[in-house]
Amino acid sequence: MLELRLIQGSLLKKVLEAIKDLVTEANFDCSATGFSLQAMDSSHVALVALLLRSEGFDHYRCDRNLSMGINLNNMSKMLRCAGPEDIITIKGDDGTDTVTFMFESQKQDKISDFEMKLMDIDSEHLGIPDAEYQAIVRMPSAEFARICKDLGSIGDTVVISVTKEGVKFFTRGDVGSANIVCRQNTSVDKPEDSTVIEMNEPVSLTFALRYMNSFTKATTLSEVVTISLSSELPVVVEYKIAEMGYIRFYLAPKIED
């Protein structure tokens, strides 16, 4: 028996919009810890890890660990039928091949049940060890999205370099090149507008912009994005989900042949 009630149902709608283009099918895992997902894109270049902690739900019942294979496009279609203010409850049962999404309006005067078919998904779960990153950049998520979009119109790859001077985003394409430097900036009243750079060592890595631009679909979930970089490791682009958990995107670098 599974019953997860989320007052701020819009969070789940935003999560689906953020990942459905990167990953088409995935297993959602439900345990005492929370509702989670780990999945790679079809080319195994990027990985998304989602956690919505049980404490963040208004009601959380999960009698035993359950894995639900879901087509994310279909789930997104169903969640789009929920109003922006609706409360969403996810209901499931052991041994059934469906999951139900219940949408309640704030005034409780409209209740909708959407039943969706589950599928068997043979997915590989990867162990991601904790790593010490050479540099961690925290910046406004909208600013990062803007940079990725702008650079994506010029080139296919971005070189992200962190030095004492700041974080530099560079691309080159047929029409020319672009270089954007963001300096550390903490002298603002709103901490979410700051750019903070923690650097142990300078680092420079190259990534495909197509994936970076896909990650920025999570911008609506958090005002701040954290970018963790180490040479020889995938970059981690993390959006915290208020009070509940996170979406982390891992992207393998492009390396010199």
């Binding site: 270049v45 990985l47 779960h125 162990g127 060890p129 995938p234 992207l251 010199e256």
Partner: peptide, 14 residues
């Protein structure tokens, strides 16, 4: 020329 690494080259099945 740069080659695209894959996630599975860094993280192993758990």
């Amino acid at each position: 020329n740069r080659i695209q690494m894959s996630i599975t080259q860094f993280y192993r099945s758990s």
